[in-house]
Computed example of a mutant assay.
Amino acid sequence: MKNIIYALALLFTLNIAAQEGPDHKGKKGKRGMQKEMLQDMTPQQIATLQTKKLTLALDLSDKQQRQTMALQTEVATERKAKMEAHKAKKEKGEKPTKAERYQMMNERLDAKIAYKKKMKEILTDEQYTKWEKMQAKKGKGKKKSRGKRKNKER
């Protein structure tokens, strides 16, 4: 009888420990809040913030700041327009076809390649190496959060 009670108590405590914490119930994570805040900003505001972050991280010169600001504004404007178009399609209930998804992914990768080339022109070799490490670290964080989301859905 004692063994059954111990087993039930053990199972009960393990079940409680496996539950999600109170910070995950109905609340958005850090990335969700950032995404929501960025949606309310203009492309110019987003570009300004990103340029300042890069200036702090890479110690950019005035010329580099101006060039980065122009590039960030261009990218933020394009991203905002694509987000609006995607949102409009989603509200209509339209889903992209396989060919459209392929085209979107291809365009996104082309844009990343062009962005990387422009950053290489703007930054010094040392700054560019540091920037690449920052980008790689940023990408790893996205992969981890994506993995957590997939596990929750199961």
Rank of each mutant, 00 (worst) to 15 (best):
K92S: 07
N106D: 14
M119A: 09
M1P: 12
K82E: 15
I16P: 03
L123F: 11
L8S: 09
K130I: 02
Q72V: 04
K112M: 13
A88F: 00
I16H: 02
W131A: 15
Q72E: 14
A18H: 01
Q45A: 13
G32D: 04
L109E: 14
Q65V: 14
T55R: 08
A17D: 00
E78T: 08
D40E: 12
Y6R: 10
I5V: 15
A70L: 04
Q45R: 07
K118P: 03
H24S: 11
L11H: 03
M69F: 10
G29R: 01
L38C: 01
A114N: 09
A85D: 15
Q50V: 11
K92C: 01
K53E: 14
E100R: 13
M1T: 13
K35I: 09
Q39K: 05
D23L: 05
K90T: 11
K118L: 04
K82N: 12
I113N: 03
Q50C: 05
Q64L: 09
K152L: 08
L56H: 08
K143Y: 08
A7P: 01
V75H: 06
M41R: 02
G21Q: 06
L49N: 09
S145Y: 01
K30W: 11
G26V: 12
A70I: 10
E91D: 11
L123P: 09
T13E: 01
Q103M: 15
T73G: 00
A7G: 08
V75T: 10
A9F: 07
K117H: 04
K25I: 15
M105A: 12
E107A: 07
H86R: 12
E91H: 03
A76L: 03
K143V: 15
R79H: 10
K130L: 02
R66H: 12
Y6D: 07
Q72M: 14
